[in-house]
Design a protein around this nucleic acid. Structure first.
Length: 153
DNA sequence: GCCAACGTTGGC
DNA sequence: GCCAACGTTGGC
């Protein structure tokens, strides 16, 4: 099993939105970056766990935990001209973008802020904490996962 | 709202 | 295939 970090803007789709979804499950759609796409398509499997990270807010940070309940399948928002994620170059026969289904596990009692992540000696190489890190999906090592779990109270 | 960092596009 | 111009992300 692998660990990940999924970024989302709380105004658009935050952890509270996920909690209210049927079965507390939602498609993680709209990823339009090739590096993130490759991870979604090739590496992220059922049973993997991820931190839910709120970006573009004050403060940015980790707010909870999710797991993957359905592995890679074509992102159907790319086929829909009405969608803001529409991409005419992605077709059902030759899909360019992929998504997974994520399921709520828990919301932490507090936000573990980006600043805190950056300050922790065991997390200094964590991808999301690196300068200029813009990837919406990043890998998390088992050690980083354990460290962050221990910080949450 | 600014802007650094980074990804993508397209002319050549 | 290079790289300048442009667009986006997201912390601050």
């Amino acid at each position: 099993m692998k660990y990940w970090l999924f970024k989302s803007e709380p105004e658009t789709f935050g952890i509270d939105h996920l909690i209210k979804r049927p079965k507390q499950t939602e498609q993680w759609d709209g990823v339009r970056n090739y590096q993130a796409r490759n991870m979604l398509r090739d590496d992220i499997k059922i049973g993997d766990k991820a931190f839910f990270y709120h970006s573009n807010c004050t403060p940015p940070g980790i707010v909870g935990m999710i797991d993957i309940v359905k592995a890679s399948y074509p992102d159907t928002t790319a086929f829909n001209p009405e969608s803001k994620y529409y991409d005419p170059k992605s077709t059902p026969d030759n899909p360019r973008w992929f998504m997974v289904d994520v399921h709520f596990i828990k919301k932490f009692d507090r936000i573990i802020s980006l600043e805190e992540l950056k300050q922790h000696p065991l997390l200094e190489n964590m991808v999301v904490a690196r300068r200029g890190s813009r990837l919406s999906i990043t890998p998390v090592t088992a050690e980083e996962w354990k460290t962050i779990i221990a910080m949450r109270k």
